[in-house]
Design a protein around this nucleic acid. Structure first.
Length: 450
RNA sequence: GGUGGAAUGGCCGAGAGGCGAGGCAAGGGACUGCAAAUCCCUCUACACGGGUUCAAAUCCCGUUUCCACCUCCA
């Protein structure tokens, strides 16, 4: 049985689902720019949970939202609208563009698609009716500025996920000036904001023309698509507060139930010692990895070498190491034939189920790789078993490179030089070929390249 | 100030009371005309101070340092 660390109870708990089914929600991207590999680490977490849960025999339904409206950078400045100004194209085009690129990046990291990707902009009615219900039942109110706010103090267990207490939250910290005084309490948050001068991405509601707050979208979409009971809610550690705390308050106030059974959070990725962020200037995109001639799955491999709930420091050195191990393992798998037979391994299975102990599973694979007692076909079957969860595409056979005519000429001349034992010329040509992107190997049967 | 974590060799990183994970880098060797690749070998650590124990990197107390969150964040 799969076991995971649960944030609210701070314990490793059994993941049982109900009636053999697991309902999962993973907070998705705000589509105003490319996802960097740090963002993708979180989506990899949900992918690992899905894969491990399926291995444990559960059926999984995964819903991941696309935030294409309502995510404020500062008050009244929507991230997508500001990017739309930068790129000088329609905000919905911005959202569409980056949503497509998000899906492409997921595919490059072998992250299985969710069952449903609801868009915030297409869920406005769900949010409006959720907000109406919250106002009706006294969980929300209309502030003096016309915005609708959630009343944090009306929700008794606020803070259960993050450990923050309402009375300990620093009042006034990064307080938005325009909201000053409009809210009853500093920790209240906006469910719906009045448009004022804003003309794009606004909707008509009972409270006037406006747009939704960020937190309400996940409550509205998860309740609509997964129902009143969600087994697992996954996201990055930074969403623990305030996003998930607020979401829990909203959802529970709507359903009268503990809507989400387990909250699961992935830790942050650091790059060369610092949190990956635009302001630190250390953002790495999947494309950057590809541009350095590394397999994008090297990033996946590097992530798997660390437990999901420890901060990890990614470096180019670790990506290069991952890349070469990946190549070596693919040749181990290829050497084992072409069978798709899978042999399960208790030790690896235990590692996966024990709170996604992927480092241990990789260690076990390294031991299998070295074990002379295991024949190549069995090695292949064991690696294929692991790959169901690891998703490293270990059966991939390297594509044969197509030689340019220039490369063919160089190879031919080198072969002739070698027959003449003209090693100076042979070495010169090797240098040219390497500059040309071909690695040359000389063996007993002559030269080969890759 | 509140909250959640972390500290292991040149570097990255598992391990959670008892035979020194593994990887990368480096050095040596085999192979090679020379390389590359591959294979073999070598190097060996648990932040600090106390305590518990036959036995502590691992448990307890304290200290120091670092990271993250506290209303933009994966």
């Amino acid at each position: 049985m799969l076991r995971l660390y649960e944030t609210r109870s701070r314990e490793v708990v059994d993941i049982t689902g109900s009636a053999g089914q697991l309902k999962m929600y993973c907070c998705g991207p705000t589509v105003y720019r490319d996802a960097h590999v740090g963002n993708l680490r979180t989506f990899l977490l949900s992918d690992l949970i899905v894969r491990a849960a399926r291995l444990s025999g559960l059926g999984v339904t995964l819903v991941q939202n696309i935030t294409d409206v309502g995510h404020m950078a500062t008050d009244l400045e929507d991230k997508i609208l500001s990017q739309s100004k930068v790129e000088k194209i329609d905000p919905f085009e911005i959202a569409k563009k980056y949503e497509e690129r998000f899906h492409a990046d997921l595919a490059r990291l072998n992250i299985l698609p969710a069952d449903l990707y609801p868009r915030a902009s297409e869920s406005i009615e769900l949010m409006i009716s959720a907000i109406e219900k919250l106002v009706e039942n006294g969980s929300a109110y209309i502030g003096t500025d016309g915005n609708v706010y959630f009343d944090a103090q009306s929700f008794p267990t606020y803070g259960a996920i993050s450990g923050n207490r309402l009375d300990a939250l620093k009042p006034g910290y990064r307080f938005e000036a325009s909201e000053d005084g409009a809210k009853r309490f500093h920790a209240d948050w906006a469910l719906w904001k009045i448009a004022h001068d804003r003309t794009q991405m606004v909707w008509q509601t009972p409270w006037g023309l406006g747009f939704p707050g960020w937190h309400i979208e996940c409550s509205a979409m998860s309740l609509a698509h997964l129902g009143q009971s969600v087994d697992l809610h996954v996201g990055g550690i930074d969403l623990r507060f305030p996003h998930h705390e607020n979401e829990r308050a909203q959802s529970n106030a709507l359903t009268g139930l503990e809507t989400v059974t387990h909250w699961i959070h992935g830790e942050h990725l650091l790059f060369e010692g610092r949190k990956m962020s635009k302001s630190a200037g250390n953002v790495v995109l999947v494309q950057d990895i590809i541009d350095r001639d590394l397999d994008p799955l090297s990033a996946r491999f590097a992530f798997l070498e660390n437990r999901y709930r420890s901060q990890m420091d990614l470096t180019w050195a670790s990506l290069k190491a991952a890349h070469s191990t990946l190549k070596r393992w693919r040749s181990v798998v290829a050497a084992g034939g072409t069978s798709s037979a899978v042999e399960s391994d208790a030790e690896m299975e235990q590692a996966f189920f024990n709170d996604l102990d992927t480092p241990k599973a990789l260690q076990r694979l390294r031991a299998i790789e070295k074990d002379a007692q295991i024949n190549p076909a069995r090695k292949r079957a064991l690696f294929l078993f692991a790959d169901q969860v690891l998703g490293l595409d270990l059966t991939r056979v390297p594509e044969a490179k197509v030689l340019t005519s220039e490369q063919e000429v160089l190879l031919q001349s080198r072969q002739e030089a070698r027959l003449r034992k003209d090693f100076a010329e042979s070495d010169r040509l090797r240098g040219l070929l390497e500059a040309n992107g071909l690695a040359i190997h000389d063996g007993p049967e002559g030269q080969s390249w890759s």
